[in-house]
């Protein structure tokens, strides 16, 4: 009788584990783009309404999210989980209709399983005691010490099984967001490299030049990287001898010219070209032309500050 019951329980446990493993690794097959958009938007809560998914909501915030999901699905660059991760990165974990299966959020999945296992074990223990008390009326007190050890082992086993089961459920049921990192899930993209390069620029020119170089490896026509790498190389070269300065001057003029060719509306390249042509090439007339064209293109404050006084100096030099 006891052996048969054990076989049944073993079969149930094996079947449960098998189903969970199957569910977590199965391939659901290809979906159409609209299917993917629907599936993703059903996983995301509308951030401005109560209890509605983006899929059903007609709120403007939900519509904007739906449009973004459609755009990312159309681009085809991200998986469903990555699209959900992008939205959760922006709006926070509260927009996930299924809580995450990792980190602190995983407790939502782990705790119910843990409590279920612990309470089941406690009930089983209680029933066993009552059964013993009913059938064996008189038990010698010397035998009380032995169950203590098995009781402690039982507690440990119960907690281990509860936590392990909970983690398994969390991994299977919770949303896994592959892009997320402790810093917020921003990818190591050219945008990130450019921001790091700008941050390093004033204090660590060598690192900034390397970072701009990495951007150009990924995107050879990146105008910002072309411009600022050339500018920093020229600034660095000024402390060296004539030969190095001359080589840097040639490569800087080429790179800035290339940046202007790629984007003639980009003021920074025009301003730097004006500065370099004057300070390192001694050509005031060309410099004035480049600086004026830069100022016409509304440069950011940092760059404007570099050339506004230069423009007046050039004017004075050319007229005097």
């Amino acid at each position: 009788m006891f052996a048969r019951r054990r076989i049944v329980w073993t079969a149930i446990i094996v079947a449960t584990i098998a189903l969970l493993v199957f569910g977590s690794v199965r391939d659901t097959g290809p979906l159409t783009q609209q299917d993917r958009i629907d599936t993703i938007t059903k996983r995301i809560a509308c951030p401005t309404c109560d209890g509605e998914s983006v899929f059903v909501s007609r709120a403007s915030a939900a519509q904007a999210i739906r449009a973004e999901v459609a755009r990312q699905v159309g681009d085809g660059a991200r998986t469903d989980d990555e699209v959900v991760a992008y939205i959760a990165d922006r709006f926070g974990g509260a927009v996930l209709l299924l809580p995450r299966g990792t980190g602190f959020d995983a407790l939502i999945w782990v705790l119910p399983v843990l409590f279920t296992v612990v309470l089941s074990a406690a009930l089983g223990l209680a029933f066993r005691r009552w059964q013993r008390a009913g059938t064996v009326a008189a038990v010698s007190t010397s035998k009380v010490a032995a169950p203590r050890r098995s009781f402690a082992i039982g507690i440990v086993l119960t907690v281990v099984v509860g936590v392990a089961g909970g983690v398994l459920v969390a991994r299977q049921s919770g949303q896994r967001l592959p892009l997320q990192t402790p810093t917020g899930g921003i990818e190591d993209s050219t945008a990130s490299l450019l921001a790091q390069a700008r941050f390093s620029g004033p204090t660590d020119v060598k690192t900034a030049i390397e970072l701009y170089g990495r951007v150009l490896e990924l995107d050879p026509d990146n105008v910002e990287a072309l411009t600022y790498r050339a500018w920093l190389i020229m600034l660095s070269a000024r402390q060296f001898d004539e030969l190095i300065r001359s080589q840097a001057y040639t490569s800087t003029i080429t790179a800035l010219g290339r940046a202007i060719e790629l984007d003639s509306a980009y003021p920074d390249a025009m301003c730097f070209l004006g500065i370099v042509v004057y300070r390192d090439g001694g050509d005031a007339k060309s410099a004035k032309e480049f600086v004026d064209r830069c100022l016409e293109r509304d440069p950011p404050a940092e760059v404007r500050g570099l050339v506004e006084s230069l423009s007046a100096d050039l004017e004075a030099e050319l007229n005097g």
Partner: peptide
């Protein structure tokens, strides 16, 4: 299309 709003959350 709300893409800037979504990008900033």
């Amino acid at each position: 299309d709300g893409s800037i709003a979504v990008a900033f959350g």
